[in-house]
Amino acid sequence: MKTIKYIGALWVCIIIQACNSDDDTNGLRIVYEENYIETLFLEAGETIPPVVNWSGETGTFSATTLPSTAPDDLFRRNLSIDEETGVLSWDRSIPLGEIEIIITASSSSETASTTITIKNTFVGGLFYGGFNSDISDNPDISMIDSSNSINFTKEGIVGLLGTSGEDIISMSGTWTIDESFITVSFDTNNRVMIGDMNARNGSPAATFIGQWGEGLGQNNTIENLMGAFIFEND
């Protein structure tokens, strides 16, 4: 029995040594506190510095986005990484949806990468704007006034309040979002709005821009197109 125990202990030692050897061969590693980060629309943020086993030689960090989730120029507009600390930062204009970011640590002899996913979610807000009757492919929205307000709630309810001549417009309905693409369905006259929600660093802070009409067809298309709209959040 003692012989069997000794053999078993020897195998454990061999396995541990092999695992340690594998860790050594893996070399450089980057560990962030979170690799999946959830943030809210119009909120800036940053990670804490990652833990990196530089093996005695400090290197630098770089980053890029996966083309399938965002263009690389996000690092010229919305994202940045500190080359010395590895802190990843984003401003309030980061696009809605999920963005996958590849972060690379490099020394003179080793390179390692890890992926961080940022999920930016729109939960609601109050916007001011209006509508026109331009149904062209490139509608002119420059003359739209801000006599209407639209309020999105986190429960998925939407309310529209405005004027049309001497009449007061008041409608309620529901909204859904897919990435930055928002569909509004009102309870009145089968009215719908479909558009993109985009954040900005300046003023206004965000714009909801698209087309409106009656009836929602297949593939989220408007059956009876009646014009364009733009709403802004200050």
Rank of each mutant, 00 (worst) to 15 (best):
Ser203Ile: 15
Leu96Gln: 02
Asn190Lys: 08
Gly59Cys: 04
Gly8Lys: 14
Ser68Cys: 00
Gly215His: 07
Asn198Trp: 01
Ser180Lys: 12
Met226Asp: 04
Asp73Gln: 13
Val192Glu: 11
Glu223Pro: 00
Thr58Val: 09
Ser108Cys: 03
Glu83Trp: 04
Ser133Phe: 14
Arg29Ile: 07
Ile144Val: 11
Glu179Ser: 14
Thr207Asn: 12
Ile30Lys: 10
Leu40Trp: 06
Ile48Pro: 00
Gln211Lys: 15
Thr111Ala: 14
Asn20Ser: 05
Asp145Tyr: 12
Glu100Arg: 10
Ile157Gly: 00
Tyr6Ile: 15
Glu179Gly: 01
Ile99Gln: 10
Ile141Ala: 07
Arg191Ile: 02
Ile102Pro: 00
Thr64Ser: 02
Ile30Leu: 05
Ser80Glu: 14
Ala70Met: 08
Phe122Thr: 04
Ser185Ala: 09
Asp167His: 12
Arg77Asp: 09
Thr65Asp: 01
Thr188Phe: 11
Ser107Arg: 03
Ile116Ala: 05
Ile144Leu: 03
Arg29Trp: 02
Ile222Tyr: 04
Gly130Trp: 13
Glu110Asp: 14
Ala63Tyr: 01
Thr114Gly: 05
Arg200His: 15
Thr58Gln: 08
Arg191Phe: 07
Trp11Ser: 13
Gly125Glu: 06
Ile116Tyr: 02
Val184Asp: 00
Leu160Asp: 02
Leu161Asn: 14
Ser149Cys: 00
Met193Trp: 11
Gly124Asp: 02
Asn132Tyr: 05
Ile150Pro: 01
Ala228Glu: 03
Asn201Arg: 00
Glu100Ala: 08
Tyr128Phe: 15
Ile48Leu: 14
Val192Met: 09
Thr39Pro: 04
Ser21Phe: 15
Glu98Met: 03
Asn233His: 13
Thr117Met: 10
Glu38Pro: 00
Asp91Gln: 12
Arg191Cys: 04
Phe75Lys: 06
Ser93Leu: 09
Val87Cys: 08
Asn151Arg: 10
Thr114Ile: 13
Ala112Val: 07
Gly129Pro: 01
Ile4Gly: 03
Asn219Ala: 00
Leu88Cys: 06
Asp72Val: 11
Ser185His: 07
Pro49Ala: 13
Trp90Lys: 08
Ser68Ala: 07
Lys5Asn: 08
Ile182Tyr: 04
Thr3Phe: 12
Asp167Cys: 03
Gly162Ile: 05
Ile30His: 09
Gly56Ser: 06
Gly156Asp: 04
Ile150Gln: 04
Asn189Tyr: 10
Val52Arg: 08
Leu88Glu: 03
Asp24Gln: 13
Leu28Ala: 08
Ser107Glu: 01
Leu160Trp: 15
Ile16Phe: 14
Leu74Met: 09
Ile116Arg: 04
Thr183Glu: 00
Asn233Arg: 15
Met193Gln: 09
Leu10Val: 06
Glu110Trp: 07
Ser55Glu: 09
Asn35Glu: 13
Ala9Phe: 15
Met171Phe: 14
Ile135Leu: 01
Asn120Phe: 04
Leu10Ser: 14
Thr25Ser: 07
Ile141Lys: 10
Asn190Ile: 08
Ser164Gly: 01
Leu28Ile: 10
Thr121Met: 12
Ser21Met: 04
Ser146Ala: 10
Trp175Phe: 12
Met171Ile: 06
